[in-house]
């Protein structure tokens, strides 16, 4: 079901995006031919672009793709009844944009309890531009760099100690919603804590930092940056861990175990009982007369 929704959403989103892109392109051509290069996919001069250019590009992208819900100045929009359409993004920081847009959660395909993860709409450069624009509005958490969440460069012992520490932090702070294997769990009113089994380490870090959607913010005062790294080290070690006990049954705990006990276990046993009862001693076996 979720898969169906996703693919349906991705089709509609692509259609919308292409149209939007074309309008944007026409606008750019009309205003100034020079801007064309910035929208062209062949442009690779990331490093060469100045911060001001990125912010300006980001603002344009924002006005096209985000402003309808978040407002023209990212101030947030509400209906006349006071219901929120989109929250203010002032001060959420580049990390929030990188998480929301980088995992495809934003832009949302349709309003709902929670924005599901889906294929990204913007390319890396566009995400960076959007992040730069939102970061320019007010100070907020920046996008973490690779050394913030990668265990590379650690010695074996350091890494092991980090994993053990991270495991305890994970079990204390994360499992209540994300489940003990990180397989995800239910939240009230149709919300859910998503599975962490495939999530990019950078996005895990950003999620802790910014607390997207139903999630709490685990600020650096709450879980220090080194501890965040430990948590990611633990999650990655659990992904690499072999299935010691065999097939993991979805990692959902006793409910799936019970289902397998009944369907696979009792199903097989009853099947064998039928088989044994059907094969019995007969004084004679007449074709078509067996009862």
């Amino acid at each position: 079901m979720r898969l169906l929704n996703r693919s349906a959403a991705s089709i509609s989103r692509h259609r919308r995006r292409r149209g939007a892109g074309l309008v944007l392109l026409l606008m750019g051509l009309l205003l100034s031919g020079g801007l064309y290069a910035a929208f062209s996919p062949s442009s690779t001069a990331d490093d060469a672009r100045t911060q001001a250019e990125m912010v300006e590009n980001g603002r344009r992208l924002f006005l096209t793709g985000c402003a309808s819900c978040h407002g023209q100045n990212a101030e947030g929009l509400t209906t006349i009844n006071g219901q929120m359409i989109g929250p203010s993004l002032v001060g959420v920081g580049a990390a929030a944009v990188d998480f929301q847009v980088g995992t495809g959660r934003m832009p949302m395909a349709f309003p709902g309890v929670q924005a599901p993860e889906k294929p990204e709409v913007y390319n890396e450069e566009e995400v960076a531009d959007l992040a730069a624009y939102v970061a320019s509005l007010a100070p907020g958490p920046a996008i973490p760099s690779e050394e913030d969440y990668s265990t590379e460069g650690m010695s074996e012992e350091e890494k092991e100690a980090a994993i053990v520490r991270g495991g305890q932090i994970f079990l204390t702070n994360c499992t209540a919603c994300h489940n003990f294997t990180g397989a995800g769990g239910a939240m009230p009113h149709g919300g859910y804590a998503p599975s962490l089994l495939e999530t990019d380490p950078k996005h895990i870090y950003e999620a802790m930092l910014t607390g997207p959607q139903s999630m709490d913010v685990f600020s650096n005062g709450n879980i220090p940056p080194e501890a965040k790294k430990d948590v990611i080290a633990y999650i990655e070690s659990m992904r690499e861990q072999p299935g010691y006990g065999g097939f993991g049954l979805g990692g959902l705990g006793p409910v799936s175990e019970g289902a397998f006990a009944w369907i696979a276990g009792i199903g097989t046993m009853v099947g064998f009982a039928v088989w044994i009862a059907a094969h019995t001693t007969r004084s004679q076996k007449k074709k078509g007369h067996a009862a």
Partner: peptide, 16 residues
């Protein structure tokens, strides 16, 4: 992991 009254996990269910 070991039991600790401060921790809990989603999917905490008894056996069927």
């Amino acid at each position: 992991g070991p039991y600790d009254p401060t921790k809990v996990t989603a999917g905490s269910q008894p056996d069927w």
